[in-house]
Computed example of a mutant assay.
Amino acid sequence: MKKSTQPSLCKLLLPILLVIASFESFAHGSMIVPESRVYNCYLNNPENPLDPACAAAKEVAGTQAFYDWNGINQSGANGNHRDVVPDGQLCAGGQAKFAGLDLARSDWEATPLVPKADGTFDFEFIATAAHATRDWIFFVTREDYVPTAPLNWDDLVEFCRLGSVPLSANSRYILNCPLPQLSGKHVVYTTWQRSDSAEAFYTCTDVVLSNSATSNGWTDEGPLVAQTGLIQNNSITLRLFNQAGNDVESVQHTVLNTALTPVDWAYAFAQTVNSQSQYARIGVLDPNTGQITPIRSSHTNRIYTRSSLSLSYEVDIRIIGDRINLKQ
């Protein structure tokens, strides 16, 4: 009987399965509300970051870390996080590829955290691959932490611990935690330990805390990131939608007489929205007063919507008949 020279189905499938397994063991997630340090850099034009801290991180370790924002992990942690992630390498999760995230700088972009009426905050972690969970542990830097020094384990204090949390329909883990009674700029450090594996994931998130924080009814929807200049007759439009997907409001800013840099149009657009919109504001939230004020920046201003309405949004840029969708 002649032996077949065709490869077996098992041999054909093995390389495919290995590729799938490799991919799934890599891509898992990161904090997006508030944005983790790595996710913020990913949103901030990875090839040419406008944010100074992200630009410095790129100089240290290149751009690949930003594209791999969902893979800061250690495969053999098994809850022994201090053993697998050395001091000074916490934001990188002990991985050289993410070393730029460990830079000791005071200018990492930070998100003001506004607690709910009960003093808690809903952290949102997006899962590009969901896993069975042993625990989530949240740490925050101590009151006397100096941001220009390397981040070590002894700089952190635990403030929240959760077990298995269900995954929402849009692939988010909503992690409700009481906010620590601290003020000023801090780093929130999160560990996510799987229960079906020894693998764990690590996240550094820069935040601003305030004991008297108030949102005045606004929900932080994320940053307004301006990456390219605009010329005369280009326009930027903020569109708001209700939970049914119906249009609620549209505010447009048109470039009239001269070309605008990303910083210029982001600032002008924020001013237009704040003067015309009933349901949205763009700017930087003062956690003590709840006021939202735009600043001259291409990436620091954030979009806020009325909390009571549960709105979603989209920012459209029209460039001579073309439209660039920034967020939906």
Rank of each mutant, 00 (worst) to 15 (best):
C91H: 07
I72V: 13
F125Y: 15
G100R: 00
A117R: 09
Q89D: 10
S75K: 14
T133W: 09
L113V: 09
T133C: 03
S75T: 07
A104M: 08
L101P: 00
D68F: 05
I126N: 13
Q64K: 08
A77F: 00
Q89N: 13
E59C: 07
P112H: 00
G71F: 02
C91T: 02
G62H: 02
D87V: 06
A129K: 15
E124S: 14
E59L: 12
F121K: 12
A65C: 06
G79R: 09
V84R: 06
R82K: 15
I137N: 10
R134T: 00
A57K: 02
G79Q: 09
V84P: 06
I126Q: 13
A77I: 00
W69P: 05
Y67D: 01
A99K: 14
F66Y: 05
P115T: 05
V85G: 03
A61C: 13
A117L: 11
H131Q: 11
T120P: 12
G88H: 11
I72T: 12
W136L: 04
P112S: 10
E59I: 03
T133Y: 04
G93D: 06
W136R: 00
Y67T: 01
E59N: 14
Y67L: 03
D102A: 07
R134S: 07
G71L: 00
A117Q: 14
E59G: 15
D68T: 03
A61D: 11
V60S: 09
G88E: 08
I137R: 14
T111A: 08
Q95T: 12
G76M: 13
N78F: 09
K116E: 14
A104S: 13
E59W: 08
A65V: 04
A117M: 01
H131A: 12
F66I: 03
A99L: 10
A129R: 15
A127F: 03
K97M: 12
A65F: 07
D107S: 08
A129N: 15
K116V: 00
T63A: 13
D107F: 11
G119W: 06
E124G: 11
R82M: 10
N73D: 11
F123C: 08
V84N: 03
A130G: 05
S75A: 13
N70I: 00
A127I: 02
D83M: 15
Q74W: 13
G71Q: 06
D102H: 08
S106T: 05
D122S: 14
T120K: 14
W108A: 06
F125G: 01
A57S: 13
K58E: 11
